[in-house]
Design a protein around this nucleic acid. Structure first.
Lengths: 207, 207
DNA sequence: GTCTATACAAAGATAGAC
DNA sequence: GTCTATCTTTGTATAGAC
């Protein structure tokens, strides 16, 4: 009685706005979303949105920060862990990251799109650069294949893992792919990508 | 005298508007660009923009179609060519596509971003689905590795090739990467990607 | 074809009552 | 805290002179 069943109604107004905004922003991008739409989706008045968050920009910034953390927060601990092998890192990454992306398939394209048009969104966020250049993962790659820039292999791993999710709108509309079969394919990749990375990282036969 | 040296001044007004629009749209996306900005960038009056193109939307549609053709028109002939081997296709693709992307690095993220928020942009364009499922390339992949969905390998190839360009804003801002060294890396990948794809496509040792 | 001036609509933000 | 009503700005599009 005091706690109604409807989970939405329990949320604070601030939280309701934030959730509605997250959804609308993800769907239309920052520029195309109207604060009025957010207010409507949240079931509240437009004025209230400006009461809680000072402006559309401030509301967006908060959400963007959360998304960035969802997207990169998961990579960092895996890549910097000095106690795991190269192979183990790749395996853990593929498994856990694909799992995350299946649950949030629109995340990468949303974040990258907004970074493109507002590079300052990145100012907030952490040391991503380190992951690419000085992390334990980068060092192990350099040790394994000293002749090549470790970035090459990182781009392979990320590309093979993330790209399908970025291209998903294309697949859905042009290859008649539905969510279920897409997810099956992605799940298969949890095993496939580590195998493929192994092949790639194999030192070529001495010639 | 009759042909001034400045290449810009030679262009028709229509063409000047189109070029300016291409640039501004690519930078800010459809929703965030103002027709006034385009007019200013083109060095003409706002009214003139509406004289040549009936609306912002129509102007955008024309540009988007061009971009889609730039992006996919190059893949189609390579993937559908029945006279070339699997290896040759991969080699040709990597070489020619990376070349294109170095000249238009913002192309993939721009197109994919706009597709995300306006899936109807794709309605115009050709049979991309075929490339993924029934093209000569897909058939050759299926013949080589019958146990796996050919899409897996296509996603690998596209991911390894295109993803770095999509992630470029990130690399520039977070890995302190400038255009010159980025392009060097990409050029290296023209040779590396075919090698890697060969490794991936190698049938695993019988176990 | 090109301009100036302006109409018209939409969107972000605020004032003030309750 | 929440609403209604309104201000201000910005953006698309058009009218009409040259």
């Amino acid at each position: 009685m005091t706690k109604p069943a409807d989970p939405e109604s329990n949320l604070s107004t601030e939280e309701k706005i934030k959730r509605a905004a997250t959804e609308v922003f993800a769907q239309k991008g920052f520029a195309a979303t109207r604060t009025r739409d957010i207010a409507e989706a949240a079931g509240i008045n437009l004025a209230l949105l400006n009461y809680y968050f000072r402006s559309k920009q401030k509301l967006f910034d908060g959400i963007m920060l959360e998304k960035l953390q969802e997207l990169f927060g998961r990579i960092a601990p895996i890549f910097t862990d000095t106690s795991t092998s190269l192979e183990k890192k790749i395996e853990t990454f593929a498994d856990s990251y694909i799992e995350t992306l299946i649950k949030n398939p629109e995340l990468p394209l949303f974040v990258l799109s907004e970074i493109r048009t507002h590079p300052e969104s990145l100012t907030q966020i952490i040391q991503i650069g380190e992951l690419f250049t000085t992390s334990s993962f980068a060092q192990q790659l350099k040790a394994r294949r000293p002749e090549a820039n470790p970035l090459h292999f990182i781009m392979c791993l990320l590309g093979m893992t993330v790209f399908p999710f970025i291209a998903k709108p294309l697949l859905k509309s042009k290859a008649a792919m539905d969510d279920a079969s897409f997810n099956i394919l992605m799940t298969e990749r949890k095993q496939l990508i580590p195998m493929w990375m192994d092949s790639i990282l194999q030192n070529p036969v001495q010639s």
